[in-house]
Each structure stands twice: as structure tokens, then as C-alpha cells.
Amino acid sequence: MALLSYILKRIGYAALTVFFLMVLTFLMMQLLPGNPFLGDKAISQVTMDALYAKYGLDKPLWEQFLIYMNNFLHGDLGLSIKYNRPVNTIIADSFPYSAELGIRALVFAACFGVGLGVIAAIKRNTGWDSAAITLAVIGVSIPSFIMGALLQYLFAVKFRAWFGFGLPTMGWKGEATKILPTLALCFGTMATVARLTRTSMLDVLGQDYIKTARAKGLTDSEIVGRHALRNAILPVVTILGPTAATLLTGTFVVESIFNIPGLGQFFVKSIRENDYTMIAGTTVFYGIFLVAATLVVDILYGFIDPRIKLTGSRRES
């Protein structure tokens, strides 16, 4: 029962957050400087009025907002002013690229991050440990756009010069083109996961039930695999929500650097081009996506780890 009311409460907050975001986005769009119709050629006042009427920009603010909300509730995010295509279609076309990139990066970061963290914790205070920590600290300190450019330089330019072959740096066709963007995007997350895994693994390894397992004569690999790891990766689940946000903003730059036709690149472009409806639509889409991701992670965590109190507020990331 407590779980059910907790879930309902969280869904309520999520809905409020989305509404708040929509109001905010809508108001922002009204305050934006510039005019989407001011292009290279001068437009007469009559044409301008007609354009305003076509996109509903001549109506009073509250009416525009109601229309916007109504359309949104019917799943319509409006028409992109620059591309003259429905924002829904653009998102549907480009988001799969971003999602694929994000999921690849997430899986990679989770596997290697947990692996690194476990190795560092088991071989505590050895060369392995310091190497893993150094890698983790460097990973946290290098922004993904610099990582992307460095990877391009190293694996495309330098490798070609040294070994006669290199990895492709542009586009999203074929496995080879996907390696570098995934690496660039996942490095920071991998480092965070590794640090967290190491801390929680060290905590778990000091628990009494590990001593019991050792006293029973289990081998080290059995202890780690069956008893320690399961408990140690629990806290890692909590950062999946914030990680979704990190990866998502990471796609903005990584897609621009590697020229991947994903939604992140579209978003950055539409900001530069003052494409009101596109920005509003994409922001709301991203907002809902992230709110949903956090919600799912928080609820899942309640099932995975029954020890946490569901009545408490969300955990610190």
C-alpha cells in the first residue's frame, strides 16, 4: 500500500514538473528576441501578418497557450518554422539515432564502469586500484566535447599516420562509425560508475556476511560474484536517472562533432536558428523523457532494494 501511494505521489510530481516545464518553455518562446520570419529577404507587413496568422502568433497569449496545451495533449507538438515539417516527425526521425547512441554509451559505461570499480575494490591499494582511480578522475574531468575531438585526432588522424588505417569520424552508418562517438559519450559516465562501484564494493566487502562466506570456504570469485557484486551494484542503479540527463546533454555536442543526424544536433541547430516551435517541442520532449526516466528508476529502486524508505524524498544524485 505504501508502495502504491508512493508511486502515485511520484507520478503526480512528474506530471506537475512536466506542466511547469511546458509553461516555462512557452513563456520563454514569447520572450525570445528575434523573429523566425526575418530571413535573407525583406518581407512586407501584409505577408508578415499572414505568416503570423498562419502559425497562430497573432492571438492573445493565453489563447496561444491553450491551443499549445490542447495540441500537446493530442500528441501534436506543432510545425517546425524553419523546416516546415511537424516537430513530431522530426523527433521521430532523428531521436532513434540519439537513443541508439545513448543506449550504446550506457551499456558500455555500465559494463566497464562496474568492472573497473570491482577490480579497484578487490585489489585495493595496489597498482590496479590507483590506475582505475586515475582513469575515473580523468574521465570526470574531461568534458565529452573535448573527449570527442581528442578521440577523433588520435584514432582517425594519428592512427592513419602510424598504422595506415583509422576509424571513420563522421556519420552513423556501420559499426565502425559508432565506436568513437560511443566512447566519447560514455567516458564520463563510466568514470562516475567506476567510482561509485568501488566505494560501495569496499563497503560490502567489509560486511559480516562476506566474512561468513569466506569462513564457509567459498573461493574469492564465488564471494565476489554471488555475494558482494549483487549488493554492491545497488547504489549504481540510483545514478541511472541523473546519468540519463548527462548522456542526453552529451548527445548535443557528440552528435555535432561526429555529424550524427540525431535529435541533439537538431536541437542545437534550432537554437541557433530561432526555430521557436522546434525548440519548444524538443525541450518538452526531452523534459518528459528525463522525468519519465527518473520516475522509472526511482520506482524500480523501491522494488530492487526494499531497505530504502519509500516515504523519503528522492535520493541525492
Partner: peptide, 18 residues
């Protein structure tokens, strides 16, 4: 609780545009 759900970078992007 309501505003923490929105990633701050998206709000910063919106704000720095206007």
C-alpha cells in the same frame, strides 16, 4: 521537487536564449 525534475542545462539553454 517540481523544478528539480527538469535538467538545469535545458533551463539554462532556454534562459540564455532570451
Amino acid at each position: 521537487e517540481i523544478i528539480i525534475g527538469i535538467p538545469y542545462l535545458i533551463i539554462v539553454i532556454l534562459l540564455s536564449m532570451i
